[in-house]
Structures are given as C-alpha cells and as structure tokens.
Design a protein around this nucleic acid. Structure first.
Lengths: 352, 352
DNA sequence: AATTTTAATGCAATCGATTGTACTTTATTG
DNA sequence: CAATAAAGTACAATCGATTGCATTAAAATT
C-alpha cells in the first residue's frame, strides 16, 4: 500500500488506467478534462500522498519561483528586516527567498551571483558589499536576462532598478536638526567612501552646513566604521583638540553609541553640551535610557517595495529596459541624545 | 555570435561536433574523456557563457542542494543569527538556504512545510511557532523521508534530531545567581507554556528555589509575553502588592527591559533594591547604560551545529533512525542589572 | 599486417511534469 | 440513422543534464 518511492503522476495514471497527461491536466484544473476524471484524480492523488515535483515543473516552464537575496550579513537588523519585507511580499505569490551572505567580501558576492544564476532563480535582490569594485558579476546577470534589484547599497546602473532611501536628505535633515538645536560645530562620522549611501550622507551634511553658512572643517569629518569601538576612539581623539565640537552626526548607530559612551566617560553632558544623532534607527537606539536620535531607513518597506518592483518587472515587457529607481523618504527619530528642548519626544518622529 | 537563448550542453556539443554526453562528462571531469577534449569543451563553454542548469541536474540526481529554514520571524536577532550560522556552515558545501516565516501561526507553518516539500529541498530546519499544536505536518516530512532538524523550539519526536540549549540549566543558574546576590523574593516572568523552552525555564527557576529552600509563590510566577509593554505592565501590577519582590528573572529580554523601565519610573533602585535578569542576550542588553544581565543562547553556534547534524545525517544510513539530540550550554552574562557587588563585570561571562 | 587491449566517444533512456496535436468517444443535428 | 460537431483522452516531444552500455578509434602486442 505504502509506496516506498516518491509518487509521480505516472503512478497515478497507472493506477487509474489513464494517461499521465490527463492526470497533469486534471491536477491543473484544465477545462478539457471532465469533472468526473478531475475529481477522481484529485482524490487518488491525495490517497497516494502525491507531492508535486516543482523541479520538473520548473525545468519545463523555465520559472523556479525562487529569488535570491544577497546581503553582507543576515543578522544585521537592517538587512534581516529588508529580507522580511521581501519574503512577506513574495511568499503569498508562491515565491521562495534564498539568502546569501557576502561578509562584505567582493569575491563572495561574485560567487553568490554565480551560484544563484546556476540555480535558475527568477530574480536577484542585492545590497553590495563594501569592497565591491567592478561590476563584471552584475554584467553576468544582465547577460542571463535575470531581473536584478539593488536595495540600499546600489551600484550605478543604466538598466537595473533600485530601491533606496534618500540618504542625502536624511543626512541633511539630521544635520539641520542639530543646527536648530543651536549646534554650530558639528562633527560627521563618515562611512566607507566606496558606498554611495555614505557619500550621499556626507553630502547631505555638507549641504546643510552650507545652507546655514557654517564652515566646513576637514578635521570635523572623520572616517569611522560603524562599530562601538570606532565611535569611542573617534571621540577620545576629537576631545584632545583645542576646539571641541558641540554635536556629532554619525553615519551609523553603533559609532554614535560608542561616541556617547566615551562622552559620558569624559564627563560631557548630552545633549546640553553635545548633541548626538545616528543613522539606521537600530532597535537599541530607542531602548537606551538616553534614547539616541537616528534616521530610520524603513527597511521593511524597502523590502516590500523592492519585491513589488520585481513583480512589476516580470509583468512588463521582457526587455530589461523597464528600469525603475525608487527613493524612499527616511524618517527622523528625535530622541534625548539631541533634544535640548526636552519636550516629550521619545516617540516623536518627523516624516520627511 | 551572441546567442539569444540560454546555452545548454547541446549547443556546445553542436558547435564542437561531439555528443552532449561527452560535453557533460568533460565538464564533470570524467576520467574517460581525453584531456584535449576536456580543455576544448571547457574553453568553448566559457566562450559561449554556458551556465549549468542545476534544475535539470537536480531532477536527475534527486538532490537540490537547497535546505529550508522555518522560523517565526527572520528579523528577530536570535533567529537571524541561527540562520547565519546555518548558512555559513552549509554554503561552502554548495547548499543554499531558503527562508520561511510563520509569524507564529500554525497554519503558516503547515503551508511552509508543504511548499518546501514541493520544492524538493534536501532538508528542513525548524523552530516551531507558539501556536503549533499537533504534528501532522511533521509527519508529512517523515513520510517524504526528508531530514528535519528542530532547533531551539522543538517538538518531542522519536525520530528527528534537535539542537537546543539547556534551558533548564540556564534558568537554574540565572536564578541561583540572583539568590547569590541575596535576593529571596524572586519573580519569574514566564513565557508561553505551549513551548518547551519556557516550561523548562520555569522548571529551572523552580528547582533553584527549592535547592535553596526558598518558597515557591504562585503570585510571583507571572505569564508575560516578551515585549517591553508586557514587562512594564507586569511590574506596575506587581508593585501594587503588599509584598514586594527583590528580583525578577524574566524568560525574555524585552520584558526584562520593560520591567526595568517601569521600576525606574517607580523609583526603585536597580540592582540594590531589585535585581533583574533576562534571557536571550539580545544585543541591546549590553548596550544599555545599565547593562542587563541575560542568558545567552549561542545562536550562531546553534545554527552551525544544526547544520553539522544535518550533514552527518546525510552521510549516515538513509534510515532516519539516526536521531541526535544536541543540547548546548547557555552562557550567563552578568551585568549591572543584577550585580550588587559592583565588581567590574560588564564583560564577565560565566560559561556553564 | 593482423589481432587484442585500451582509451574515447556516442546512443538512448531517464528524472517528472507539461502541452501541441492527433485521435477516439459521445452528443448533436439534419 | 448517418454525418458532423464537441468533448475527453492519449501520444509523444520537450525542458537540460546524467549515465549504463554499445561502439568506434587508437594503441599495443604478437
């Protein structure tokens, strides 16, 4: 009774003395098959514990209903949230999400792209690594006619779509907010210049200073990795200078946290003496006793929209010329670390 | 020159006037093929931008080199870290990880299992949802002869392997630590009783109290979801009692955080008046000004070991009787929230 | 040069589902 | 009741790679 091997439509067809074609059509609810047959087939399939082999189906149809997502690390809150967004949008449509990590290494990115193309995924979502230089691997994707969507960390591309936030504006508003708090000597912790997101954030910072006629000082623009340690180190060095800053706009939350820790150690009052604002709105920023102001990148939404762009692309003309650049509005969360006016703001959020 | 369609081994065989079988063998480095031919084929394949179709290969071999991971939410630090561990262990062996979310809903879990079996994955890793009741879906996996590994939140199963931490002992040690701090009236925030991890934690708490001859009071055992709000609420209600607790052992970090926030609001000193310890060692617990003590579940290691168990299973006898139960040791991180002695402990960790 | 080994390669079936086309029923119509 | 239309099924090719077995070509042996 209990078949030992996997049940196929051939097993069903044999049992019912009909052709496999009929079984297939019956299971796919093809109108050419009589109701009687359909019901019989479906009932028998259930009885025999038939499980459709999507592999064979995919081979035939050329569609796998799998998409690949490439990120530096999946356990970084921002990335896992984007992935969640993608999954939630695509899962109801029958897609599965395959995840790949690059560990910020270009070589892994290339390897992952190759592997995904191999697996015949229907699309790729990618946030490039810090060390990604050329775009040969992206070119390969283009050749294979596979849709690809950049999110957050993109490469300039005349053909591929992207979903990002307006990093320039996020940074501009963060800086402007600091200026509004009365800060005049604002330090910027700058992220890796290889990534557009960080150069944009830097430009937004600069633009805000210019707008308010504040001088742009080289010594106040410091390359800082987004780690607690880097933030601590940066502050400890900054506070050896004669001219002390009165605010820090960090391109990352972890370095903002490190800065705050070091400032406390130095006995500097926050926000009265120095205001601090980060970027990413990591969960911990709101849980601190002294909440850290930050710019939210709306990762969940970013994932969902990236998925939508992908789906649109599929429907549209097969030519990959339907390139689309979505830029989301970042959200400024003002918390204690930059709020001198001490209004109740722990939950105040400024939608830009 | 530039083929419009995908290149297959047939295209290569045509171009070289050899059979597809030879091409296949050449690409697979079969010893029966002459070096000359091999080199020629490989060179031509590269020229023609040949990409192997793993779908066809999988159909033939019955192995997809895909595994599925089912979790409640992928953007919960614990789960994304386990997934990271799984990915890092399996990726070098050519496997891909497909992720599925249940949103803590049983129906989604069933759906996900079905979908994964459909896709012909080579294995499933699952952490069951809070609402999972029966195990019909797990039975289906058994019928399909697909290896399945439970991690963290498991179901009792005589056939499937699992990788968990010793929740009982983690809870026992956390409670013992509180007792060692001089606490005598210890509250327990208990998680959903449907999950073994939480009943085990409760039992560990109870055992520690018994060991030290402390009374077990029903009113001090409170069902609390692991959210900040639930933690706040629980404390605000507890502190209406005549007899105030002097410690809280929470089965989750978020509720521990909520408790701390509420205690501060009530003007209760931590840790001098009340000690608090959580569970999970979420990243934010160490970043707080007042670090929150917690029990680490070593998620990365859990993922890696789960992957190893899966690989072992593949090598072993095809019969699924090679069931293996791995129990990892939790790690106690003692921080300010429960450390009255005020020794430098921000990084002290007790390996059990 | 003839024959036996050995090395290379080709043929054809297979994995499981889908689908255009051909064929056989059954129903409809004059 | 024969002829035609409509409905229901079956045949066989296809997707792309793999592999046991047969076959051919080359090398070694006598």
């Amino acid at each position: 009774m209990n078949e030992n091997e996997k049940v196929t439509i051939y097993d069903i067809s044999e049992r019912l003395n009909i052709s496999a074609a009929t079984v297939s059509r019956a299971l796919n609810n093809n109108p050419k098959i009589s109701l009687k047959t359909k019901e019989l087939v479906i009932k028998t399939a259930k009885e025999m514990n038939y499980i459709q082999n999507r592999l064979a189906q995919s081979l035939k149809s050329g569609k796998t209903f799998n998409v690949g997502v490439i990120v530096p690390y999946i356990n970084r809150n921002f990335f896992s949230s984007v992935i969640r967004g993608i999954e939630e949008e695509l899962s109801p449509r029958g897609y599965h999400v395959i995840i790949c990590q690059t560990h910020e290494k270009f070589e892994n990115e290339v390897r992952n792209i190759d592997a995904l193309l191999n697996t015949q995924i229907d699309g790729i979502f990618i946030s490039i690594s810090k060390t990604t230089k050329d775009n040969g691997h992206i070119q390969k994707v283009l050749n294979s006619k596979t849709p690809l969507i950049f999110f957050d960390r993109k490469q300039d591309s005349p053909v591929f779509s992207s979903v990002t936030i307006d990093d320039f504006n996020g940074a501009y508003l963060a800086t402007e907010h600091l200026i509004n708090q009365g800060c005049r000597k604002i330090v910027h912790f700058k992220g890796d210049s290889n990534l557009e997101i960080y150069t944009k954030r830097y430009e937004g910072y600069e633009a805000a200073l210019k707008k308010y006629n504040l001088p742009i000082k080289k010594k106040f623009i410091i390359p800082v990795d987004s780690t607690v340690e880097a933030g601590q180190l940066a502050v400890s060095q900054l506070w050896k200078l004669k001219e002390k800053p009165d605010a820090i706009f960090s391109a990352g939350d972890y370095s903002a946290l490190g800065a705050i820790q070091e400032l406390k150690k130095l006995g500097v009052k926050i926000p009265s003496e120095v205001c601090v604002i980060g970027f990413s709105n990591e969960p911990f920023t709101q849980h601190m006793e002294l909440g850290i102001s930050s710019v939210d990148q709306t990762p969940l939404e970013m994932g969902k929209i990236a998925a939508q762009v992908f789906l649109e692309q599929l429907l549209g003309d097969k030519k990959l010329t339907i390139q689309k650049k979505v830029v989301l509005a970042p959200e400024l969360y003002i918390r204690d670390s930059s709020n001198k006016s001490q209004v109740e703001t722990s939950k105040r959020k400024v939608r830009i």
